[in-house]
Amino acid sequence: MAEDLQVPYGASKGEIYKALFPQLQALTDGEPDLIANMANIASALREAFGFFWVGFYRVEGDRLVLGPFQGPPACTRIMYGKGVCGTAWKGGHTLIVPDVEKFPGHIACSSLSRSEIVVPVRNNGLVTAVLDVDSDRLDHFDEIDAFYLEKICALVR
């Protein structure tokens, strides 16, 4: 696959995800390197949607460690059950946070982040990483994002 994304800018969010998903499948198919796949997925999501921050945190023992990302510098380590990312890891399910200021224990890596979605990445049933996407707008994420980001996270292996 060519590394140039074909993104239908101006289309609905769902249509953009529908166009992006098979391209991400092609980009990750046959690539065994986890970090390379995470890097390309983060880059493609930021390019397609203009999210403020997109990246992965990898499970390393009792904490999440910063992995490939796109956006401003981020927190490097997050403890299990702490912040939105640690809470999504602990609960094992996607978290949508419409206003990060109202999330108990939110870890502010950037004061510009206003809303967030975190999706666990599973391998053999275990959460091995999380995909974290931040927006500089309130209430940016919804069930459409959750549905497609969960499908995209299934590509991370």
Rank of each mutant, 00 (worst) to 15 (best):
A88G: 06
V156D: 09
R137W: 00
V7A: 02
F103C: 03
I152A: 09
F51A: 00
E116P: 09
Y9V: 05
Y17F: 15
L5R: 08
A11M: 04
P32F: 07
V84Q: 11
Y17V: 02
F69M: 13
T87H: 07
A42C: 13
D136C: 02
Q70H: 07
W53T: 09
D62Q: 14
Q6C: 00
V127Q: 07
L95C: 11
D132A: 09
V84M: 03
L45W: 10
R114W: 01
I117K: 12
K102T: 14
W89E: 13
G67T: 10
L45S: 02
F51I: 02
W89R: 08
T128G: 01
E15V: 04
G71M: 07
G30H: 12
E31R: 13
K82W: 03
F52W: 05
L112Y: 04
N124V: 03
Q70C: 05
D99S: 03
G67C: 02
A39Q: 15
A74T: 07
D145G: 09
L34M: 14
P120Q: 07
C109W: 08
L126P: 02
A19C: 08
D4W: 02
V118P: 03
I78W: 02
I144P: 00
V133T: 09
V130R: 13
L27Q: 11
C85F: 04
E3G: 11
K18W: 00
F49T: 06
A2M: 13
N40T: 03
P68A: 15
E15C: 01
T28I: 14
G91N: 15
G55K: 11
L45E: 10
P104F: 05
G14H: 07
S113N: 03
I152W: 04
A36N: 02
P98S: 12
N40S: 14
Q70W: 01
D132C: 05
R157E: 08
R46N: 05
V97Y: 09
P73M: 03
G105F: 11
G105S: 10
Y80Q: 12
K151L: 14
A26D: 14
P68Y: 05
I152Y: 05
M79C: 03
H106S: 03
C153S: 11
Q25I: 13
G86T: 06
A11Y: 03
R157P: 00
F51W: 14
L27M: 15
Q25D: 00
K90L: 12
L126W: 00
A2I: 10
C75Y: 05
L149W: 12
E150Q: 14
G91L: 15
S110K: 09
P120C: 06
T128H: 02
